[in-house]
Each structure stands twice: as structure tokens, then as C-alpha cells.
Amino acid sequence: MFSRTYRTAITVPPLVWVAVFLLVPYLLMFCYSFWSVSESGTIAHSWNLDNYHELLTKPVYWQTLLRSMWIAARVMFFSMLLGYPLAYFLSFHAGGRKDLYYQLVIIPLWVSYLVRAYAWKTILGTDGVLNTLLQYVHLTSHPLDFLLYSPFAVVLTLTHIYTPFTFLPIYASLEHIPHNLVEASHDLGATPAQTFWRVIFPLSIPGVLAGATFAFVLSLGDFLAPLLLGGPSGIMISNIVVSLFGAAYNWPLGAAISLCMLALVLGLIFFSERLEKKWSFS
């Protein structure tokens, strides 16, 4: 159909791109993860499993990884809790204002992530908007200090940032449900609540899975929110990776942690795609 030259011309550039900017770095990381830092501070190219051993035995690493997963799970849960009803409302009850509301959900995505994270900092801080307000209405006599520099602040910020990412796939899957299925369900005697649980929700599962994966995976690897708002108790695994590649200068251990996270995330995505396929009927 297309000439050989044409096909080469359109397939080679992306392949080169992926190779140079994705495969080669991953391969390098893979190699690094089996190397070590010598006492003189240089990378010793001697192959061993020490990094992985350290990762599993030193509590700070696996505990931080577990805490990161726990934070990511909460972000996933709360952004579902917000994103699903929002998507449901837009899809079934927004009427003619649907497009307007949709834009209102999307617009925050145009604002820099950093700006939004800093905004939470000014809201949650000791002299922040929230504490000032709470003291003004005498709900508290002194500023609440758990608001900022805590896992709570990280979960709140990440939920705010990733809710649109869960909203979008859920909304797309709800919009794909033919309206006559809802009518058919009512016609067969099902109340709106029964219709939701038996027809609408099962058919939106692919969107729910995609949204949940987005929220979890993106939160798990996040390092800005914990850096800005997490404090010592809100440190996440990416902060450790960043410091290992930076100040701590232990690239091999950093690479090992990164690869573990990569494996975890790929496993999750694979699993969620399998489930999505099982629940899609188009």
C-alpha cells in the first residue's frame, strides 16, 4: 500500500526516540542497580545483588515504600469518591450545561502543579487561611499543626491534583453507556438506585479501573507534594530516590529502588488492563 521508503520514514524516528530516551536509560538503570559505590566514591562496576538486599533489609526503604503505597491508595480512594459522583452528575444530570461543567473540571489542569501545591501550603500553614479562619470563628484556640507537613497534607494535595485524572476515564465510560439501557432497566421495574448498581456501575468499571490506576500510579511516584507539604512524616519513596541520585550519591541503590517501583507499576497496569478487558463490552 505505502512505499517502503515511506514506511521506513514514519516508523524509524519514533523507534529511535523510544530507544534513545527510554530503552537505553532503563538499560543503564538496570546495570547500575547491580553495581555499587566504592569507598573512594566512584561507581564500581562489579556485579552483585547488594542493593536489592539492602532495599529489603533496611526498614527505611521498604517502610517508606509501604507508606507511599498507603498514601497512593488513599489518594486513589478519595479521588474516586470525588471523581465518580462528579462524572455521574455530568453524564446523567447536567443537561445542557454538560460542556461547561466539563471545561470547569479540565481548566485546573492548565494551572501548574507547583502553583497548586503551593496554594495548599498557604491554605494549610500555621498562619494559613484555614487556621486563621478556624481561630477567627473560635473553633480552635491555637493553630492546628497536623494540617501541614504531614501525610494528611500530601493526601489532600494529591487528591486535589489527581481527581480530574480519575474523573476523565470514568466520565468517558459513563458517556459510552447507551441511554436506552437505563430506560430498559427502568422499564423492567428497576428503581434508579437498582439501575445504578445493576447496569450503570458495572458498565463503568473499565473507567473506574483506568481512573484508579491513574491516581495510584501517579501518586506513588510523586515527589513534589511530599517535598513541599509532607514534612519528615510525609516522605515518599521518590524523595529517597531523588536524594540517592543527588546529595547521597548512591546511584546504584537509587536505580534498584526505581526498578522495583517500575516493576510494581507495570504489574499494576497489566493487572488493571486485564480487568478492564474483562469488563468492556463494546
Binding site: P178, N180, L181, E183, A184, S185, V199, P202, L203, W279, F281, S282
Partner: peptide
Amino acid sequence: FQHYALFPH
């Protein structure tokens, strides 16, 4: 229904 509206799941 015109297009049957069977529940696909």
C-alpha cells in the same frame, strides 16, 4: 426497544 437495548454485561 428499537435497538433492543440488551444489557451487554
